[in-house]
Amino acid sequence: MNDMTPIQTTLKDWETDQEVRWCPGCGDYAILKAVQRTLPMVGADPRNTVFVSGIGCSSRFPYYVESYGFHTIHGRAPAFATGIKLANPELDVWIVTGDGDGMSIGGNHTMHVLRRNLDCQILLFNNEIYGLTKGQYSPTSRVGTPSPTSPIGSVDRPASPCAFALGAGARFVARGYDVSKDLPEVLKAAYAHKGAAFVEIFQNCIVYNKDRFDDFTAKAVSADMQIMCRDGEPLLFCKESKGLSLDLDTLSLKVVDVADGDWQGAGVAVHDVRNRSLAHMLVEMPFGAFPMALGVIHNDPAPTFESAVVAERASLTAGKSADLSRLLSKGQTWTVS
């Protein structure tokens, strides 16, 4: 079609002339920068890249990336992305959504894009609050979250986006947070994954849910309360003084102390991104007793939806020609003379 000679880009090439309209200090700025920093590193091509979003603060994202962009309707970005990718599998499709957009009104589409395994990157900005509608509790808000619609604290139990994604059959699940220096590394892995890559990004809403994630992102506690999962590396945290070990009696993870760097001696598990059971355990760890699992938690590629659709079409149409005249006169006919 067009000349697709690979091009080299810089962060600047991915910036639009539009004034960014998020609140000053919003975590979205950091995520935008991380994405714009990642795109040149992975060799992405602006003319071949499409950012698709739904509705919410996060969904303004496409306006700020110098590529093709489609700001759609609430919750439906995965469905638009499916049409885009099936129409042109050559495109790099990114879905930007939030906890309200992707887990509430669009939960159904999130589920189906994951189970079908459409090749795309899904960035779910989780700030545990509805920002654009002024601070109501969201499907990821913790029980007791005070808000305009829950004056004495919300009563419904939150959903866990990563557990949901795994339950829906996601083959790539990762976690990061807005100001994390590791975020580009996670985004790079998501981009490299062929299939639906689901990335939950904790994001600080400084107006309605300020510092919600400080209990693991604040400098003072981050080393103790985060565990960065890397394939083939031991699951260590707290400056390698602690690790996660599999308790064979309960078939669950437990925190163990590591003395003198002897993690093997302490029974610390080695992260395996293809191990689905481990992924489930990592995303379900109760925070507090356990650290927050970040990084690439699961990565086990499977055939993609668009390739299956293309193959199905090829098999259904093998040996057939697009002869309209023949199509129209199919079946039993008669001639009037």
Binding site: V50, V52, F70, T72, I73, R76, A79, F80, A81, T82, G83, I84, K85, L86, A87, N88, L91, H109
Partner: peptide, 9 residues
């Protein structure tokens, strides 16, 4: 929505 996505593409 998928049909609109395809039209967009």
């Amino acid at each position: 929505c998928a049909a609109i996505g395809a039209s967009y593409a």
